[in-house]
Amino acid sequence: MRCFFSSILVLILIGCASAPLPLKKMNGVSFVASRDTISQQHVQPVVQLNANYAAIMPFGFIKELEHPEIIHNTERQWYGETRSGAKQYIETLKSEGIKIMIKPQIWVWRGEFTGLIKMNTEEDWKTLETSYTDFILEYAALAEETNSELFCIGTELENFIAARPEFWKGLITKVREIYNGKLTYASNWDEYKRTPFWKEIDYIGIDAYFPLSDKQAPTVKDYIEGWSKHKPQIEAWSKQLNKPILFTEYGYRNMDYAGREPWLSDHKIKTLNLEAQANATEALFEVFWHEPWFAGGFVWKWFHNYENSGGQGDNQFTPQNKPAEEVIRTYYKTYK
């Protein structure tokens, strides 16, 4: 009888060993800075989403694409965009078990694309380098102070990187001198192969707004087929550099043609298509979340005032109070 039960136990253990458990991922939200402080009440919807990470995004501002000075951490900014606001957000989220990526970002006046920032003179480049270093090191120090798990050294700054690659490598060294956590950079979806410093940081960060379908209302299958053009290249890049891929941003609008140019944030677009957003979100999880070389991602974007955010009449990126939120909740629970 003892031998019989021993045999059964061995079979059970073999069966368990042959069924791999889901991989734990960074199941993140891009937590939008607001005018106000936050409380546990504002964090509970993040917890209920089964998220385990939040990106905190303090902002610096530039007047125009050729302007070299970054204005940041001033009284004229919203509370959540400043150092003290970011710290308060981090501490409140951490008190509820949410880990943190600090992701300082630049806003160019009138919302022009940050990847086009480019100086006209050597003097202006040096001024920009000094200003950007001050901006980034201020928040790297905050990351260390708050024991934040991940720090992002920049977001979608391709021209700046292409023109000044040695500056960026030096900046990474300076950040490492004051911050002991992991580092990433948020490259645009069509930029990541040209980013020169992946070997110096820990995660290949991609803002994953890849074009996937020209259809008005793509199915999950349509979106998965759209990823077939991009996924092999992403995986090959990860394996070539021996670095995990992290989607520092991902998300879709609930509108017609949501997969055609997913980066569009034009408020003139008025169509509503909740299914298109939910299908795109489901497809992304099906394609990436099970892969061992994929670290996870941060949905764009999540507002603190949950009850008044998103909803079925809103066609912007947030999944809040839309069918896509339930898709995220389900997959985040599986890979938590």
Rank of each mutant, 00 (worst) to 15 (best):
P244A: 09
R176V: 02
F151M: 01
V175G: 03
T74N: 03
M101D: 02
A51C: 11
C16E: 13
P22F: 03
I178N: 03
A33W: 06
V220F: 08
I100M: 07
S228A: 14
A186Q: 05
I172T: 00
G296K: 07
K268C: 08
F31N: 12
E191D: 14
A278G: 09
A141E: 13
L274H: 00
D202R: 01
V43D: 06
E81L: 06
N242E: 12
T130R: 12
L212E: 06
N73M: 02
W109V: 09
R110E: 15
S228Q: 15
S7T: 11
K229Y: 10
A283Q: 07
E156I: 02
L11S: 15
I100W: 04
W168M: 11
I102C: 01
P45I: 10
L246G: 03
K215C: 10
D124V: 02
L183V: 05
S265Q: 13
E191V: 00
A143P: 04
S213Q: 04
E177H: 05
Y252W: 12
P68Q: 00
K215I: 07
V299Y: 14
V220M: 09
W198P: 05
F317E: 13
K169W: 07
M1H: 15
H267Y: 11
E261H: 10
S131T: 00
K182L: 02
P58V: 00
T37F: 06
I204M: 09
E129M: 08
I172Y: 03
S238Q: 00
S84Q: 12
A162D: 09
Y192K: 09
L116R: 08
A278L: 09
S6K: 15
